[in-house]
Design a protein around this nucleic acid. Structure first.
Lengths: 345, 345
DNA sequence: ATGAAAGCGCTAACAT
DNA sequence: ATGTTAGCGCTTTCAT
């Protein structure tokens, strides 16, 4: 072996020492090693220490895979996020990672890049490997979702489908609140900057807005759909300016921030010439210019609840699981909303 | 079984159908099923179709774990990021996910939350399960790192340790550029807002700044260390204002953005009263107020290169691997830098 | 307290 | 082209 190779360290693809190597070195049976490592009290003090020493010496690291096939299998839970670059999922991811770890599972985090097909592919690909799925903001159709739920334990976030456990964040009430806030400021013509067509949340928000607009007797316009990213902001802002609306509510903060940037470029004053409201209160919503009025979502809690729901399904002991949890949002008012130049007619 | 249970779908913890179930249903041996599914051409057309039908009918999904233990093992590559909520890693994560997937590996993404101990724990925990590691911005000591590299194939990013393969993003040259930019604007007293003490990048940047400051005959002050998040911004900004410096270069954009926010709160005009430069050009650097001058890092490329390096180590066929790659950064000038009130003395 | 043996789901030699 | 067998690393009865 050359020096350079030695310096590299681990042998390429060299399977590390196995439980049998440790057994041989400590002069016991493999099963004893297994016990010593997983149920230390079930083995003699002296033996255990000998085994531990041998394991240390060999640099033994147990592979978790076999546990996933044998009896008492644990395993991985796959979390499929549509866009890992969307700050919305930050706290969610952290939250699920914590909860899963605590419950003895490994988080398998996958970015589906807003692509339904990719999402379906991963769902299928990991079906055999993961013991369950968490699907925040899935883009799957009801049929796909139901079929997937029939095959693997799974929990969705912000997506209600019959028979599929879900955690719902109540943004519809939130956007209604936002609308009323705008109404109270004098706005009478409001635009909704729509998100992905296959987003369930999008549909619900739009419905809620229409309903409330009718009640208030004001105009609500649906613009878009837009890809939920800051890049869509320019297009959305331009359309918005030509629409006649004096305020807008965006599908999410990314779009809203993109709109703010574009409006500034075009010299439009926010909120005096245009009020902007986002959804989610993501990283950046507080330091963009002007700071964004938005709906703060309890996303970290959503992650916790979703994980608990899934885990309770995974443990056969538990009696019965909650099929649905609903979490409230609240409106965080910042400088991006204010009076329109003049109350509409 | 109650209706509600039925509607839930998958049986709780029900191990799905196995390859043997499919074999039984299609009247062939298990090995034939395996072949039919992995090397379709090696099996009779008719048989294959029968097997595929049976698999479909049972909803069979292969478990990937056994492949990880048996011969020709593939497996997971663990990517340990210090802070998944830091937008810096966005494109990196995407990039590694793509590359790994292409190469036939699964990305195991783990958030170590800026915690050395947690990082070490995960490194140990996944040592047996993952075939290799990618460590962007590890906080480990040289000893820990070398020891880890001796046990598992691993590639670091932004961390050079003898014998450990690494991808280095050349921010030192970048911060020197930034300093010269500030110098040309008339700044003669510049502060460096330091990052985590155990960050290798931090040390390198500081060294580069000191060296260049001496050359230019100007003052450079080290303030901090600060936790690399926007939350540290307030403390950093306050110290900064009392330091006498007319400009600052921050460890990363999160700190820089936090500083911008705080300065605005305190009514300090950026860049007229204080110039601010960040590092990394993360999401948010372009839409904060004022937009942040920063060093744009080719992080997506870094992910690609790092993955390639690791994968080439994993495949025994490859002759020899690159031990080091260096990637350049460039200074992106935005509105957060400008002339100081008056050139220092 | 420990060992022997069987088995998890899958793949790959080796036979047929 | 297909079946048989052995084996991956680990856990778990069941003996001893």
């Amino acid at each position: 072996m050359s020096i350079s190779e030695a310096s590299i360290g681990a042998s390429p693809l060299g399977r590390g020492p196995t439980i049998r190597d440790v057994a041989a070195l400590s002069g016991v049976a493999a099963s004893t090693v297994s016990r010593a490592l997983t149920q230390p009290h079930r083995v003699n003090q002296a033996t255990r220490e000998r085994i531990e020493a041998a394991a240390r010496e060999l640099g033994y690291a147990p592979s978790t895979y076999p546990r996933s096939t044998g009896p008492g299998r644990s395993g991985a839970v796959a979390v499929l996020v549509p866009d890992i670059t969307n700050p919305y999922f930050f706290d969610f991811i952290r939250s699920t990672q914590h909860q899963l770890k605590t419950a003895g599972y490994t988080q398998l985090l996958v970015d589906t890049e807003e692509d339904v097909e990719l999402e379906a592919t991963y769902l299928e690909e990991f079906r055999g490997s993961a013991v369950g799925f968490i699907l925040p903001a899935t883009r799957l159709s009801d049929e796909q979702l139901i079929s997937a739920a029939a095959k693997s334990p799974l929990v969705t976030i912000n997506r209600s489908t019959p028979g599929v456990p879900s955690v719902i964040i109540d943004t519809p009430s939130g956007v209604q609140q936002a609308m009323e806030h705008l109404f109270s400021l004098g706005h009478r013509d409001i635009a909704y900057l729509a998100g992905p067509p296959n987003s369930w949340s999008d549909g619900r928000r739009w419905d809620a807005l229409q309903e409330r607009a009718e009640l208030l007797g004001i105009i609500i316009r649906r613009l878009g759909p837009y890809h939920p990213s800051t890049r869509s902001g320019a297009a959305a802002a331009d359309t918005l300016l030509n629409s006649g609306a004096t305020a807008c509510i965006a599908f999410n903060d990314l779009v809203a921030i993109g709109v703010l940037v574009r409006l500034r470029e075009r010299g439009i004053d926010v909120p005096n010439e245009m009020s902007v409201v986002g959804c989610d209160d993501i990283f950046g919503a507080d330091f963009c210019q002007p700071p964004l009025t938005t709906l703060t979502a309890p996303i970290e809690q959503a992650g916790r609840v979703a994980t608990d729901m899934l885990v309770s399904r995974l443990r056969p002991g538990r009696s019965q699981m909650r099929m649905k949890a609903e979490l409230p949002t609240h409106l965080t008012i910042r400088a991006s909303t204010g009076p329109p130049l003049r109350p509409a007619r």
